[in-house]
């Protein structure tokens, strides 16, 4: 489908470019340049700031590193802050990957049941999950904290993972159910003629077919988990987990409070905490954009 529309679009775009709109091109580029500068400038400032020394920073906070000094970055990657940084990178990755896996596995299986099981109650099941959209995680944070404390998961990554999965399920089910419904019934009929049970159909045929939808919800869950601050603050921060078991956002905030005198170390730490997210974003950008668009249309 996509290729078909592409085919018709290309020539019309060429016509349009020739005919109108060429007069404003310099302005378009100027506005785009300003927008990009505003968006990226502060981030660049932090990354470059990490390559400066504190005296350099204090004499000219807006300047460039002169000379370049990699000490701050070295301290974090292999020096006194290494255990903290790598520990937090590991914790953040563990929590984000486990959350994503949990959301995708549980969400897809429920969406399959809702979309395809011929029985009463699937509509009600959908409503139960859709109702969860009304309860943002913020509202449930205090009782969640106490429950996590009661079952002994405070300070444990699981105490962050499980509530994150639970609160991400409503969005996931709401996005995935129409997606599974759209997979033609004939495929399932054909599979069952070949002797596939529902379970084997799910694993061998539905999962590969539903992959784009799963990637979308997975990417959203991953980004949400990677950047989340409130739940880790309660479960890990207030729960008394040692610094190297914090997530990166929590770690950056704690680092800032603890080493507030060394601005350039804070900048280096923030930059390094930022890189994994940026790399993930640039590789997954297509899915993120599609996912957000789909979440709105669906």
């Amino acid at each position: 489908m996509a290729t078909a529309t592409m085919g018709t679009r290309v020539p019309t775009q060429e016509i349009r470019q020739k005919k109108v709109w060429s007069w404003s091109q310099p302005w378009v580029y100027l506005v785009a340049l300003v927008a990009v500068g505003v968006a990226v400038g502060p981030v660049l400032w932090v990354v470059l700031g990490g390559a400066r020394t504190n005296p350099q920073f204090l004499t000219d906070p807006a300047g460039l590193p002169n000379p370049w000094n990699w000490g701050n970055y070295a301290d974090i990657l292999g020096g006194q802050f290494a255990q903290r940084f790598w520990g937090q990178l590991w914790t953040s990755s563990l929590i984000a990957i486990a959350t994503t896996a949990g959301v995708v596995i549980l969400g897809t299986s429920v969406a399959y049941a809702i979309a395809r099981f011929p029985m009463r109650g699937t509509g009600a099941l959908f409503s139960v999950f859709a109702a969860g959209l009304m309860f943002p995680a913020t509202v449930g944070i205090l009782p969640t904290w106490i429950i996590i404390n009661e079952i002994g998961l405070v300070g444990n990554p699981l105490g962050v993972i499980i509530p994150q999965v639970a609160f991400a399920l409503p969005t996931t089910v709401v996005i995935l159910t129409p997606f599974v419904k759209a997979i033609p019934n004939e495929i399932e009929e054909a599979a069952s003629i070949d002797g596939a049970t529902r379970t084997s159909f799910f694993f061998r045929i539905l999962l590969p077919l539903a992959r784009p939808g799963m990637v979308t919800v997975g990417v959203l869950a991953f980004v949400g988990s990677w950047n989340s601050y409130m739940l880790p603050l309660f479960v890990l921060g207030a729960g008394g987990a040692p610094a190297h078991q914090h997530t990166l956002p929590l770690g950056v905030q704690m680092f800032t409070t603890q080493f507030s005198a060394s601005m350039t170390s804070i900048m280096a730490f923030s930059s390094l905490a930022l890189i994994p997210a940026l790399v993930f974003f640039f590789t997954m950008q297509k899915y993120i954009v599609n996912g957000l668009a789909g979440a709105v249309k669906g």
Partner: peptide, 9 residues
């Protein structure tokens, strides 16, 4: 890019 930078950073 700003959208991907966490609130904390």
């Amino acid at each position: 890019v700003p959208w991907i930078v966490s609130e904390v950073i």
